[in-house]
């Protein structure tokens, strides 16, 4: 029994070192938060809000690709659904923005459940193909539907007053609201990953047949993860529509599903902050290039970045940094 005592002491020692790592992580998060809080005074707030929306979208996507091991090629559908529902409610029914965003998110959750039920039993490329096909279906639906404005999209969506009294036409208020939305989404993902549910997800990703043999109905767990991801993608789309006062077919196009894969992979799939870094990187690069002489070459350059990332830096920016830190500072 002496053994038990020492091993228990060891376990608590490990928990101590985990706590220390946690404290470091919290320090990093606080530093990032401080940067996010002063950022609108240093950079153009609308561009920052764009980054936050796409970062949330990429984080949501990462929950299925990085933490569940499912390559969805249809996440654009959720982004667009959030956007269209919110845009419709804000411009046609004059609801307050938070209600519009909640309904948009709910719509994405419902669509995600539907997608998930149809596709979750398939694996690998078949899963990607089914999600792509379903997303294309949604794209053509939005193209034909009346309320979306078809190819013109939904223009001039009013930002309105948050909770009825905070004027979101003010870019600064808008920015802090988007930041809050992003943080809620990010914290939900972080909690999901470090929850009892997250442990099961990890087990499924690591060895699915074994997880089944331990009595877990793996499809149900994957479905829940997929629906959470779809909901957060919808939240990102809804918020984006409020920011840009616009919902367009671009968001529903399969390009968008591809772009979020690019952001996630460049930043670091399966890392918490990777998608944020990836979204920032891709959007900044696109933005800078569009203003430079190389404007027409944006997609070519992004393609080269993607190829380089897949071939040489498979772990992405954050993943490679983590590897480097592990090697050198242990």
């Amino acid at each position: 029994m002496a053994m038990t005592e020492t091993t228990k002491a060891r376990v608590s020692a490990v928990q101590e070192s985990k706590k220390a790592a946690n404290r470091r992580r919290i320090m990093i998060y606080l530093a990032l938060l401080a940067v996010a809080l002063i950022a609108p005074f240093l950079a153009y707030p609308v561009f920052l809000m764009k980054i936050l929306c796409f970062a949330l979208f990429a984080c949501a996507f990462n929950l299925v690709l990085g933490y569940t091991g499912l390559l969805s090629f249809g996440h654009a559908a959720f982004l667009a659904t959030g956007g269209y529902f919110t845009g419709y409610l804000l411009s046609q029914h004059a609801v307050t923005p938070e209600v519009g965003i909640l309904v948009g998110t709910l719509a994405a959750i419902i669509l995600g459940t539907f997608f998930g039920l149809l596709s979750i039993r398939r694996q690998g490329i078949y899963f990607a193909m089914i999600t792509l096909a379903l997303a294309q279906l949604v794209f053509f639906f939005y193209l034909q539907a009346d309320f979306t404005g078809g190819e013109d999209g939904m223009q001039g969506v009013p930002r309105g007053y948050l909770f009825g009294f905070i004027d979101l036409e003010n870019n600064l208020s808008m920015y802090y609201f988007v930041l809050a939305v992003f943080l809620i989404g990010f914290m939900l993902i972080q909690r999901t990953i470090h929850s009892p549910f997250g442990q099961v997800l990890k087990a499924i990703r690591e060895n699915e047949p074994r997880a089944t043999s331990l009595g877990y109905n793996v499809d149900a767990y994957k479905l829940v993860a997929f629906v959470i991801s779809a909901g957060l993608a919808g939240l990102a789309g809804s918020t984006k529509t409020v920011v840009f006062q616009l919902a367009s077919l671009n968001d529903a196009h399969w390009h968008m599903s591809g772009e979020v894969i690019l952001m996630t992979l460049v930043g670091g799939v399966g890392t918490l902050v990777g998608p944020i870094v990836g979204a920032t990187f891709v959007l900044t690069l696109t933005h800078q290039l569009a203003q430079s002489a190389l404007g027409d070459w944006v997609n070519v350059i992004l393609g080269v970045v993607f190829v380089a990332c897949v071939m040489a830096f498979r772990a992405g920016i954050v993943g490679e940094l983590q590897k480097f830190a592990k090697k050198n500072f242990k």
């Binding site: 939900l188 909690r191 999901t192 470090h194 929850s195 009892p196 549910f197 997250g198 442990q199 099961v200 087990a203 997880a211 331990l214 009595g215 877990y216 149900a220 767990y221 829940v224 959470i228």
Partner: peptide, 18 residues
């Protein structure tokens, strides 16, 4: 622990801390 966890009935609780 993953094997012990299922009977606890919290395996879908994505909002709880691990």
């Amino acid at each position: 622990r993953v094997a012990l966890q299922r009977p606890m009935g919290n395996s879908f609780h994505f909002w709880k801390h691990e």
